[in-house]
Design a protein around this nucleic acid. Structure first.
Lengths: 224, 224
DNA sequence: TAGCCTCTATGACCACGGTCATACAAAAGT
DNA sequence: ACTTTTGTATGACCGTGGTCATAGAGGCTA
C-alpha cells in the first residue's frame, strides 16, 4: 500500500497532487503481474481500467488487419498505458504487451475519471502528455513520407538513447516495429551503422558507441 | 452575439452545456475573417487562443523542415482547430490555413481553460475527440507502411464523401497532402479511378460517381 | 545431446512511387 | 488583351526498400 502510494507519487502526469489524494488513488488500485509476452490489454476490448506500469517494460502498439504492428509507446515504471481510453471507455485498436516480467497497477475507469474531475490539475497534466503523443504521431507520419529508413532508425535510436541509455536491449524486430519497416531492412541498416562505428550489437542488444553522431540538431527524439 | 451563442451551441464538443454557460463562452469570443490562403495560426508560435470555425473551411496541417505538408484536419463550422494547444500554451508544429473565405472565433486560452475546468463535461467531450484524433493519426501511420497510394487515396475519398458529400471541391495537391503522396502520383491514380468509372473530375472538383465502390467494409473513414 | 525456436545475416529480385521534364488548359491578375 | 499563375496530364527514369529465400549462431527445453 505504501509502495503503491509511492508509485503514483512518482508517476508521469500525477505531479501536483497532495499526499492525501495520492493515498486515495493508491487505495483504488489493484496490482497484477505479467510475464514476458503476456498481454495487458488487447485491441477492440472496451476500456475498463486505467493502467500504470509499476515495474518492467510494456510496449503499446497498434495492430493492422494484415498483422502489421507499429509500436507506439514503451512504458516503464511510472508511465501510463492508456490516458485517453478511460474517459470514453470505447474499444480502441491499441494492444499492450509485457516485454519483460512486469507489474501493472489497474484503476477502474470510473474511479479514475472521478478522481481526475476532483483534481483538475490532472487535466492539464494529461493534456500536456497527450499533446506530446499527438505531436509525436504526426511527426512520425511526416517521417514516413519524407525520411528514408536509415534516418527513421537513427531517430528511433536517439529516442531510445535518451530514454534507456546507450545499452538498448531490443531485437531488430522490435526496432523495426518502432521505425515502421521490416526486420530485414533493419538488419541491413544496422549493419551499415555498425560499419560506420556508430553502434555495436549482439543478439538482442544494441550498444551506441558514438552517441554524438545521433544528436543531429534537426533530429528530435520521439515521444515513446 | 446571438449568432455567436448559436455557434457554440452547435459546436463539436460543446454538447451538454447549459444555455447560460454558452452565453458566457460567447461573451469571451472575438470573431475574425480570413480570406483564402490566409493563415489562422502558424507553427512554432505559442498558443494563446482556442479557435473555432464559424464559417468557411480551414485546413490544419503539419509542415516538415523540408517543406513537406500533411493535412491533418479539414475544419468547417462548429469544428475546433486546436483542442490541445490551449491547455499547454506551448508552440506545436501545426499550421492552420483558410481554404476559402472563413470566419473564426477566438477565445483567450486562459479563459477557455477556466471554462473547461468549470464545466467538467467538456473534458470528457474533448477527450472523446482527442481519442479519435490520436487513433486516426496512428491508423494513418499504419496505412503509410502497409497500404499503397491507391488504397490511401480511396480512404481519403471515402472520408471526404462522408463529410462533404459526393462533390468534393479539392485540388489534386490538396488530396496529395491528405493521402501522404505527391501531386503526380495523385493525378495518375485519379486517372485510373476515372477510367474505372468511380469518379469524375474537373479543375478543382471531384465527383464520386459510385460511392458504393468506396465503402469497402474493411476501409474505415479517417477522422479529418 | 538432440531438437527446436528465435534472432541475425545476406543475396537476388523487382515494383511502387518519387523526381524531373514537358505540355496545355483554365483562372487570375495587370 | 496580355501575361502570369495554378491546376491537370503524362512520359521516362531509377532508387529505395519490400518480399522471398537460404543459412548459421545463440538460447531454451526435454
Amino acid at each position: 500500500m505504501e509502495a503503491r502510494a509511492q508509485l503514483f507519487q512518482d508517476a508521469m502526469g500525477f505531479s501536483g497532487i497532495s499526499g492525501l489524494e495520492i493515498k486515495k488513488l493508491a487505495a483504488m488500485a489493484t496490482m497484477q503481474r505479467f510475464s514476458k509476452g503476456q498481454m495487458v490489454f488487447e485491441q477492440d476490448q472496451p476500456c475498463d481500467y486505467f493502467h500504470l506500469v509499476a515495474s518492467g517494460l510494456v510496449k503499446v502498439y497498434i495492430c493492422s488487419a494484415s498483422g502489421y504492428r507499429m509500436t507506439y509507446l514503451l512504458a516503464r515504471r511510472g508511465e501510463p498505458l492508456n490516458l485517453v481510453g478511460p474517459f470514453t471507455g470505447d474499444p480502441r485498436f491499441l494492444c499492450a504487451e509485457a516485454m519483460q516480467a512486469t507489474e501493472v497497477a489497474h484503476i477502474p475507469r470510473h474511479d479514475f475519471v472521478r478522481f481526475v474531475a476532483a483534481n483538475p490539475i490532472l487535466f492539464s497534466n494529461i493534456m500536456a502528455i497527450l499533446s506530446k503523443a499527438v505531436d509525436s504521431a504526426n511527426s512520425r507520419l511526416i517521417d514516413m513520407v519524407e525520411k528514408r529508413v536509415e534516418e527513421r532508425l537513427l531517430r528511433v535510436l536517439l529516442t531510445l538513447l535518451d530514454k534507456f541509455g546507450s545499452e538498448i536491449r531490443l531485437t531488430s524486430a522490435e526496432l523495426a516495429e518502432l521505425a515502421g519497416t521490416t526486420v530485414e531492412t533493419t538488419l541491413r541498416t544496422m549493419a551499415r551503422l555498425r560499419s560506420l562505428g556508430i553502434i555495436e550489437s549482439e543478439r538482442g542488444q544494441i550498444k551506441i558507441i558514438r552517441p554524438a553522431s545521433l544528436k543531429n540538431p534537426e533530429r528530435l527524439p520521439l515521444w515513446v
